[in-house]
Amino acid sequence: MRKIVVTLATLTLLSGTSAWVTASQDPKVKKEIAEYQDYFKKRFPTVAKDDYSDGVNALPQYAERRANWEMLMEFPPYDADMDKAREMWKKPLKSGKTLGSCLTRPATKYPYYDEQRKEIRTVELDINECLKKHGEEPIKNVKHGKMALLIAAFREQYNGQPWDIDIDTPGAIAAYEAGKKFYWTKRGQLNFSCANCHVHSAGNKLRGDVLSAGIGHTTGFPVYRTKWSLAGKPWGTVHRRYGGCNRQVRAKPFKAQSPEYRALEFYEAAISTGVPLKVPSQRQ
């Protein structure tokens, strides 16, 4: 009897509309993503999947400071820049076409593995390719400023839609594996892996700061960050953040759009499968 109840309960969970399961049909990838997400379900039982779109603000350990963030969100500091970003996105290129004519793939499916070119493609790479194709200069700095704004204008159009990375072809599975290896490998003089802080210690206090949960990590990017705004460049891409993380553990950072960071971005998006996009976002 008990077995039947458990089976029924499992079936209900699996067939539920909740997207805590992966889009990948590969059984190993599917199982790993489910395990990763289940870990956070158990660690933060009061946090719903959709809440992870808010990054560290979603965690109960951050509750005291969430009020500040909510107040800031009443008049988000990025609003004026976003108006500019939307204009830039719609502006016809030299050929008369817009960036939207090239980037037809949903933002929830970026990055993706291109089996013809044998590489991981990011929004950054596709924007620059589109600019070139339509007679414009590609953007040199792919970490902040104009590039970050264009990505924000592209990705916000898919707000509310869940991550749905394609991990079915052999190349995509290899990309996932490369990112996974990066994520779980200790690096730098301080000897931390991404997982050490954002899985094993998620929600714990690093002095006065709370470590964010790994699930949903790349969901709100590009971000408008208080720390970066002090240096006059508030906008940053995921790869800009990766560089900062690597420096903090005293490791030599990789370049933005390097194969290493593209693989990491691919993996982080994959393990966030089902978390809805919320772009842009403000972080401290």
Binding site: S201, N204, K205, L206, R207, G208, D209, L211
Partner: peptide, 23 residues
């Protein structure tokens, strides 16, 4: 050490020093 550890000291804690973490 305070990045990750809380500490229980016998002498009073300095005013300007934030308490330790709990990693």
């Amino acid at each position: 050490c305070l990045a990750c550890h809380g500490v229980n000291t016998k002498s009073p804690w300095p005013d300007k020093l934030a308490p330790g973490g709990n990693i």
